[in-house]
């Protein structure tokens, strides 16, 4: 009886571990897509609206969900409350704070931090150029992430279940 309970526990935990890893693979491209969507909103605002960066960030935050929402919300708060420290520092701070919650990887982080260095500090044309470059970079990452998702998502799930089953079999 006890043995059966243990077996179920092992099977349950490996399965959930597998599903969690799989979710990371599924979340990454989705979050990159969200960031790209947010950046294209920013692009529109810079081209036509020419609104203040903190307002734009707040607006993006209200439209997005999850960690991406948190990222822009934090950024907007830092822009407003940090006594004029550089825009990059505000952005960097927001990225650092939010990163543990996201499923994105260090390559995306580098792209976003790099983007922050140019954020807000130049004229419209320049801003748009930088945004286009970031979009292109993120697109590459997104494609790669999707590729990984299709390859590993299912595999992680089955690996979790099968691995658990294997341990149970060996133990019995």
């Amino acid at each position: 009886m006890l043995k059966l309970l243990g077996a179920i526990l092992i099977l349950g935990s490996t399965t959930s571990a597998g599903f969690r890893t799989a979710r990371h693979f599924a979340d990454r491209p989705r979050q990159i897509r969200q960031v790209r969507h947010a950046l294209s909103l920013l692009e529109t605002e810079i081209t036509y609206g020419a609104r203040r960066l903190d307002d734009v960030c707040e607006q993006i935050a209200s439209r997005e969900k999850g960690p991406v929402r948190e990222l822009f919300h934090r950024c907007s708060e830092h822009l407003r409350n940090r006594d004029g420290i550089s825009t990059f520092s505000c952005w960097e701070l927001a990225v650092e704070e939010v990163w543990p919650q996201t499923s994105m990887q260090s390559s995306e982080r580098e792209i976003l931090l790099d983007f922050g260095k140019t954020l807000g500090v130049s004229d419209r044309e320049d801003q748009l150029q930088h945004l286009a470059r970031v979009q292109a970079n993120l697109q590459v990452e997104e494609a790669q992430a999707r590729d990984e998702q299709s390859r590993y998502e299912k595999m992680c799930k089955s690996l979790g279940i099968l691995g658990g089953a294997l341990i149970v079999l060996l133990m019995y």
């Binding site: 810079i46 020419a50 734009v56 801003q127």
Partner: peptide, 11 residues
């Protein structure tokens, strides 16, 4: 400058 421009020189 950051405070005056609200971090948005482009605007």
């Amino acid at each position: 400058l950051n405070l005056v421009s609200h971090h948005s020189l482009y605007a």
